[in-house]
Amino acid sequence: MPQETKPKKSFFNFDISIGGTGLAEKALLAKYLAVMQQSGLTITESLDIIEETARGRMKKIITVINKSVASGNSLADSFGRFPKVFSGIFISAVFAGENSGTLAENLQHLSDQLQKEKELSSKIKGAMLYPIVVLIAAFILGMGMSFIILPKIIPLFEGLKTELPFTTRALISFSHFVANNTIGLVVGIILGVIALLAILKAKFSRPVTNWLLLKIPVVKGISVNTNLARFSRTLGTLLKSGLNIDEALEITSQTVSNYYYQKAFREIGERVSKGSRLAASLDDYKKLFPKMVTRMVMVGEQSGNLEGTLIYLAEFYEVEVDNATKNLSTAIEPILLLLIGLVVGFLALSIITPIYNITGNIHR
């Protein structure tokens, strides 16, 4: 078995083993490279240390990058060999740092940005977990009722020589439909879920799904604030790393997730490249950018501290996302309870009402 590199861990006083290629792992990679650069190590020495302690896919990637740098390529070009792993902001920040002599600072800014992005993604996923789990549980219980419990109860009702209420007759019809089309229903549900997921991921559906995310009251706040936080954090980090506004806006358009924000940033980038002010360009998209954003950007441009203003905006909207995700479960819970209550109430009426009628006739 391979031996652990104890001396290197004690030298930097932390565990630098990296395995995956997610946001957290890339943030650690940037952080450790920054620390090693500040410690006076060369790029190749830093990559040697990380290569020895990395694991899994990241180890293979670092090995290729290390060989590329050792053969004379720049660090940015070496990272650029893995465009599916390292985003435009990662490569551009490294490129700007190498050319300006501020690589350690840029790597630190990059690490902070990636860590904030990881926290943002975790908050959104955590907020969506509760409603998804409840809906899946309700779906499984519904299928269990349809395929297992109802077929055993329905014959009892069919044998009753009494007028059945509408809800019970509807339940009997539904049970017969399920019994006669069990295989078709199971296959249809599976294919339907697969088709729905494929459609949601397809590019042609993005204008519709992203428009809904900006309009549905429950998720609108999270969607808007998330995109504004990513825009502010990414653009501020790139400007702080030394990129010009044109390059920074082009990369920013690739980091936001919403179709309409991406389209807006591409158009804004074209205007800015022709001499327009960023604040004035943002102001033409009032539905996407609140007045506070445009005014803060205007102040940043006039004061010459645009990157600092953008970082402040990013922190503000990250707090807004945090608050919105905490309130999401509270907002969705009554809706879920109402839907489940309607289903349970329908089943209770369908099953209890005929039994109550029979017991009433017996007493008479």
Rank of each mutant, 00 (worst) to 15 (best):
P207I: 11
L288N: 10
I49K: 09
D284R: 07
I153F: 11
K326I: 08
V224L: 13
S46D: 07
L41K: 03
N73Y: 05
T325R: 04
I335Q: 09
P290A: 11
K123S: 13
F177G: 15
N13T: 02
Y261L: 10
T237V: 03
G242N: 01
N13R: 09
G144P: 05
S17E: 13
T102N: 14
I140T: 11
I352M: 14
T5I: 11
I352A: 15
G56A: 12
F147P: 06
F139E: 08
D77K: 09
P155W: 14
M145E: 10
K125T: 09
I140C: 12
F265H: 02
K240Y: 02
T255W: 00
N258R: 04
V94Q: 07
A93S: 15
H109V: 00
L23W: 03
F95K: 07
A70P: 00
T42P: 08
D48M: 03
F346R: 03
P2C: 04
V94C: 08
F95W: 00
S74R: 01
K60T: 09
T325E: 05
V319T: 10
G159L: 10
N225A: 13
T42R: 04
G40M: 06
T168F: 13
G72S: 09
Q302W: 02
D284M: 11
F204A: 14
Y32S: 03
S39P: 08
S87G: 02
T102E: 12
T255L: 10
G159P: 10
E98S: 05
G97S: 09
I245M: 05
N361H: 10
G304W: 03
T325M: 08
K152W: 06
I268S: 01
Q37M: 14
L339R: 00
R233D: 09
S68N: 11
T252Y: 00
I332Q: 03
I140E: 11
L75M: 10
F316I: 12
L114V: 10
R81W: 03
I245R: 00
